[in-house]
């Protein structure tokens, strides 16, 4: 009855992604030990961004879903970033 064949993600792939996520976590912890001053936050958020991309695409199988889901998720993330940006326009220039 299903309208299209559902993509099955293999265990190896899931475990591989898990490995990458754990390595990235340890990496972000290690990075804070080095003195990067203001770049530290950016690096940490960058790594978090990469991690969440993996979670979204593989664990939440956006990569294998219809395009509409990827479009929606992309727009929502953009929306949150724009709202944070506009709010900061107030506080950064006060």
């Amino acid at each position: 009855m299903a309208e299209e064949k559902h993509h099955i993600i293999s265990y190896q792939k899931l475990l591989g992604v898990l490995g990458i996520l754990i390595v990235l976590t340890l990496l972000s912890v290690a990075i804070t030990e080095i003195e990067l001053s203001r770049w530290a936050t950016i690096a940490a958020l960058l790594i978090a961004g990469i991690k969440s991309t993996f979670v979204l695409l593989i664990f939440m199988h956006l990569r294998f879903d219809q395009r509409i889901f990827r479009v929606m998720v992309g727009l929502i993330i953009a929306l949150v970033l724009v709202v944070i940006f506009i709010t900061m326009l107030d506080f950064m220039f006060r």
Partner: peptide, 23 residues
């Protein structure tokens, strides 16, 4: 249900560096 659980994970991925790793 899995999607919901991944969401919980996703949020933690950001909470962790924002609170623990800004030293």
């Amino acid at each position: 249900g899995g999607l919901y659980w991944h969401l919980v994970d996703l949020i933690w991925i950001f909470l962790f560096p924002l609170f623990y790793l800004i030293a």
